[in-house]
């Protein structure tokens, strides 16, 4: 089974560009990202390019520039690398059967034990999904089943796209606990800034209009400020359609943590 050695970067994007056919603007613009055996959360508004970033790492969208490596291999050449998992629903549309029939299939595909997934579904109160097909589940159930598939069978790297979307409060808490405890590298996308408080110690990226800024640290969130224009000593400078913004430490126009979303913060400053 191809896999990277411990200590080696499990994800690497270099000047990654993605422009969809017919699109006027790129979905990803010059993204540089390196992730070792660590966890990172990327925050950005809907449409900022977060899902495209994950899909590029999975080989599901074709870069129009730059390079992508996962588990120390070119994503276009990788085969049978069971160590990478994701919660994207579209990757689980292999065959239309009830979830109960799919559990052993997905376990076998990853070389895992189906009992592990069944136990997790039980822990999350999802026993009733076993008799249903994926399209018969509620949006939140689909998301949770994807989250649990992604985090089961001992993955080395987990790519999670909006794992908390439509998930109820109690199960959000369960999922946060699971993600903090899992011994795998994690790249997690979300548009919810308020979730960051749960992920102390994780790396933090901010995504806006296809640009990825950072990495910062979630622990620094209280100290991060967004300011209009270029500032000397800024941690990052973001040139966007709303103008140029700087992310600074300890002083600036608005504290990042005060916003419900990065977009709202920028629009307030613009």
């Amino acid at each position: 089974m191809p896999s990277s050695a411990p200590g080696v970067d499990v994800l690497e994007a270099r000047q990654l560009e993605v422009t969809f056919p017919g699109a006027a603007v790129p979905a990803l613009r010059g993204v540089d990202l390196t992730l070792g055996d660590e966890k990172m959360i990327v925050v950005g508004a809907n449409g900022s390019g977060k899902t495209t970033l994950i899909k590029a790492f999975l080989g599901l969208v074709r870069p129009t520039g730059g390079s992508v490596r996962v588990l120390d291999q070119d994503v276009d050449r990788i085969q049978g690398a069971t160590g990478l998992s994701t919660n994207l629903a579209e990757v689980y549309r292999l065959v239309s059967l009830p979830i109960g029939d799919l559990v052993p299939v997905f376990a076998a595909l990853k070389g895992g034990d189906p009992r592990e997934l069944r136990e997790r579904l039980h822990e999350f109160g999802l026993d009733d999904v076993l008799g249903k097909r994926m399209h018969e589940l509620s949006t939140g159930q689909q998301k949770l089943v994807g989250d649990l598939l992604a985090t089961s069978f001992g993955p080395r790297l987990v790519l999670l796209d909006e794992p908390f979307d439509n998930v109820d409060f109690a199960r959000r808490r369960q999922l946060v606990k699971r993600l903090r405890e899992i011994s795998a590298a994690v790249l997690l996308n979300t548009h919810e800034l308020e979730l960051l408080a749960n992920f102390g110690g994780w790396k933090l990226g901010l995504m806006f209009e296809g640009h990825l800024f950072g990495p910062f640290r979630v622990d620094e969130l209280d100290r991060l400020f967004l300011s209009r224009g270029a500032r000397s000593g800024a941690l990052a400078e973001m040139t966007t359609s709303l103008g140029t913004f700087s992310i600074t430490l300890d002083a600036g126009d608005r504290p990042v943590k005060s916003a419900t979303s990065l977009n709202a913060l920028m629009e307030a400053l613009a």
């Binding site: 994503v75 990757v91 990853k110």
Partner: peptide
Amino acid sequence: YGSGALAYSFRFTRLT
């Protein structure tokens, strides 16, 4: 319907 699932599975599962 399953093109994404197949593209993913050939890379990241035991399915060939």
